[in-house]
Amino acid sequence: MALDQSFVGRTYPPTAPYEVGREKIREFAEAIGDANPAYTDPEAAKQFGHSDVIAPPTFVFAITFKAAGQVVQDPQLGLDYSRVVHGDQKFAYTRPVRAGDRLTVTSTIEAIKSLAGNDILDIRGEVHDEAGEHVVTAWTKLVARAAEEG
């Protein structure tokens, strides 16, 4: 089922702040098997010029994708989430995410396309800190694969 084009350009309200915890960063770094000390040792992070431990580059996706849930689960949009796969992902960083950040995400639907029965949805998530400064922008392309015949 083709998605409603009128959703293109729609921006959802900013999320409630997500507080980035040191131990959450550690848990994430362990899950991806990455022993870089900048993720777990505040002193090592300081030697790189960071005021506290920083998060791996892809960590913020957990926050932006949760925010994109507003879009994905919007019943008016009608996306079949059970058939959704991740198409593309991109991040542009003003600075790394670090422990103690309180981050909000503002999600915007950038594009909706239908290609060979697949619904393709481009969502941009702008991530800001408590001071309102930009931290990172995440672009997520989701593809709802066409249902098979029969």
């Binding site: 870089n36 991740h86 992902q89 790394p96 672009w139």
Partner: peptide
């Protein structure tokens, strides 16, 4: 890791 300023992939 803070040296990464952009990162994108296609799955």
């Amino acid at each position: 890791p803070g040296a990464v300023v952009e990162y994108g992939v296609r799955f």
